[in-house]
Computed example of a mutant assay.
Amino acid sequence: MINPIWLDTFITLVETGNFTRTAEQRFMTQPGVSQHLKKLEETCQCELVVRLSKGIQLTEQGQRVYQYAKEQQEKEQDFIASLKFDAPFEGKCVVACSGAIAQRIYPALLALQKQYSALNIHVEVAPRRTILSGIANNTLELGIVTNQPESEDIHSEYLGEEALGLILPRGLHDAKDISTTATHKTEDANALKDIIKHLGLINHPDAMHYLQRYFNDCGEPELAKVNPNKLPHAGYINQLSQILLPVSEGLGYTVLPISTLDFVSFADKLTVYEAKNEVTEPLYSVQTPHSALPARYQAVKQAIIQVLG
């Protein structure tokens, strides 16, 4: 086994490119740095660096040893972090959710990490089925999904509601009698039917699910009769940040959480059709039912609840 102290010295030497600065950073003497390098080269049975007048140059073997040393360093850091599962404000927290939810909760999670710098927060954007599979298989610890899962392998807690909106181009000529502003209420569902058939759907991974829910729950019988599978499409994109761009250019319409309008710079080019009833989807946190979350997740969950609750 290669001495990890020698490897740490070697990493510093490579990254500073200088024996003197390495000695300063490692609180060693310069001969001590040279001694570590010599012992490492003897162990590896090859030359690792070429000494130059203004620093060093790695040999091919030196590049490989540096890569190996960095990998070992990262593994050690991950291992130490994994042991801190009971520290309330320290360690890695992974939260999996949709892109729309990520946009809403990420600023609050960043504020929490800024407050507790030892927290290491990761937000993974993933579809509902992937999140539920990860929880069931113990590869994820915390997720947020729409609609309560029916599985004994998943524990869920209600968080709040996500409002859905049918989003149209604001400048659309044929739509002026339906919705000229995001606050202009109308019940003219027949006119809307004509417009969406003319425009076409900007499709995305959740579009058909959102459309069906919207038509069923909006409280307008004419829209409830519409079959989303028979509507014409005007395009497809799976990047949340880009879905509303073609809508803003008058190329189509779509259905998304209304909160997405808060994160685009061209919201003034969009309008939300106001149906008779507000359409929402319930949001749930999900985790394994067989063990409690590490203590550090409690602060994360509270920050999420404050945003979504």
Rank of each mutant, 00 (worst) to 15 (best):
L293F: 10
E47M: 07
E71R: 09
H198D: 12
T183N: 01
Y236C: 07
L261Q: 09
G200K: 10
Y158P: 06
G55F: 03
N216L: 10
I101W: 00
Y284S: 14
G55V: 07
L159E: 02
L140T: 04
E157P: 01
R128A: 05
P294D: 05
A102Y: 01
T139S: 14
A234N: 13
T22W: 05
I144W: 14
A207G: 12
S98R: 00
E42R: 13
L199M: 09
P221L: 04
T254A: 01
Q45F: 05
T181M: 02
R128P: 07
D206Q: 10
V95F: 01
I144R: 14
Q45I: 03
N137S: 14
D194S: 13
N137T: 11
I237L: 12
V50F: 02
S156T: 04
F263E: 15
L283D: 02
N147Q: 15
L172T: 10
Y284V: 01
F27P: 05
V255L: 06
N216D: 09
S82W: 03
T146D: 08
L132C: 13
V95E: 00
P232E: 06
V49N: 07
A118T: 15
N238L: 02
Q73H: 08
L201E: 02
V123M: 10
A182Y: 01
H36W: 11
L110Y: 02
Y236Q: 11
T280Y: 12
L112A: 09
